[in-house]
Amino acid sequence: MNDKQLQLSKQKQITPKLIRDVRERAIEFLLFLAAFSCVATTVEILFILISESVAFFEKVSIVKFLTDTQWTPLFSDAHYGILPLASGTFVTTMVALLVAIPLGTISAIYLSEFADNRLREWIKPCLELLAGIPTVVYGYFALVFVTPLLQKFFPELSGSNMLSAGLVMGIMIIPYISSVSEDAMRAVPVQLREGSYAMGATRLETALRVVFPAAISGISAAYILGISRAVGETMVVAIAAGLQPNLTLNPMEPAATITAYIVQVSLGDLPHGSIGYQTIFAAGLTLVLITLVLNIAGHFLSKRYREIY
């Protein structure tokens, strides 16, 4: 083989390898772009919310927004105070948590410490089904079934009220709380339980004094998840709690939440760029900030109380 032939064969070998390398690089870049689309989505969400809110806050001062006790952006005498909407969100969330946290936590303790495997295999999918039902169906249920039922006990209850919306929302978020808490409790090493039993503790004592404290970081993460679900829930409150902004802490009254207000405006026909259009972005930004604070709180809580075995 002379030099020329050698060179030729080398060239023949290089070209397919080059093509292959280029192709590999191109594929990697495309995959990277796909993964980066998540970052782009976040940036775009923040950009849209902030840019429309900035336009809104040029017309309405932030102090007014946070302290005014009326929310009437579509009236001629327009007031832009987020408090009535925030109170609606607060009350419905509280009612939901009063239902979901006790029921969810007790269910989780039962499933993780008391139930045998067969019962667990049956009950868990049933509970998870609760999270799979479309929220608009829950709204219908709250309006048509739960409210009339409650009116038998409280005749003065109005047709739309935060109580029934909150109760139904609470049932809806039980599976979020119970399944994440259960996972956290089952992750507690079995030696801790055995140690507790060896000291003569009963199942209940072991569950409440050993397993529950050991799993507290995961359980608090479950609560945070439940809270942010309740805060962001839209259809149940829009259908069952009414669309009237109402600054009250009484769950028997109707009141709009932040999310219900966004729905109400979207149902109408507001021109792009008007102040009414910008209000829903300001409301949305408030909602995102609330969930962001919750998520950060959850992150630090779980770090603070993390037990290392």
């Binding site: 029921l103 609760l130 169906v137």
Partner: peptide
């Protein structure tokens, strides 16, 4: 102490039933 164990087991079953009964009520009502 064992009585308390049983009482809690009953409460646990009941609280899971709340969710499941609501689900049934929803489906039956619908």
């Amino acid at each position: 102490k064992n009585v308390w164990d049983r009482i809690f087991a009953a409460i646990g079953l009941l609280s899971m039933l709340v969710g499941i009964v609501t689900l049934l009520a929803l489906i039956i009502d619908l």
